[in-house]
Amino acid sequence: MSTKLILRNKCLILGNATVGKTALVQTFHSDGAQFPKTYGMTIHADVCVKPINIPDTNVTVEMFIFDLAGHDVFQEYLPKYCRSASSYILVFDVTNADSFKALPKWLQFVKQIKDLRGGRGVLVATKIDQAFRRSVTTQQGEEFAKQHNLMYFECSSATNSDVEAPFYFVANASHELFEEHLRIISKAAAEMH
């Protein structure tokens, strides 16, 4: 009998339109093989599933990645896609200062999703390969993340650098959260009679 354990995590990808949410998700999902070279606006939401093995364990976290539309037109529909989410990744584009300024608005949105309480959020800066066009510095990103207790990552989907790290962090955190809940429930159960 197999002792493999599969955990499931619903991860929301949020941020302004055109920051590269879909590029990040598709590059990660295809292990770097499919960076979308032309822009296609995400309508409502794209969903994909990616299993992540947790090192040194028999645990696989199946990430249900909800790549949500960033365009304002879809704002009113987002809450229904966010129900019972377990984690989120906030995305901004380092060449687009507006996308960075919009982060507080996205955090406000995240606060309304009550299922998300407890999990630590993740902030991802994209397009770092375009150094000459950069308008948000690493320091600014790190400071914002620190202020709001987010984990901070920088990546470039176009050059497939560091796109896995934020997802691995979410998967690991999800596994730790599960073990913590299991410990609490096991302890409570042991006291039953």
């Binding site: 354990l5 599969i6 955990l7 499931r8 995590n9 619903k10 199946e62 249900f64 019972s84 377990s86 999800s174 599960f178 299991l182 429930i185 159960a189 042991a190 039953m192 009679h193």
Partner: peptide, 12 residues
């Protein structure tokens, strides 16, 4: 037995 249990492993 109340001491033993089934655990869900994520999502609803």
């Amino acid at each position: 037995n109340l001491k033993t249990f089934w655990m869900s492993t994520g999502l609803f």
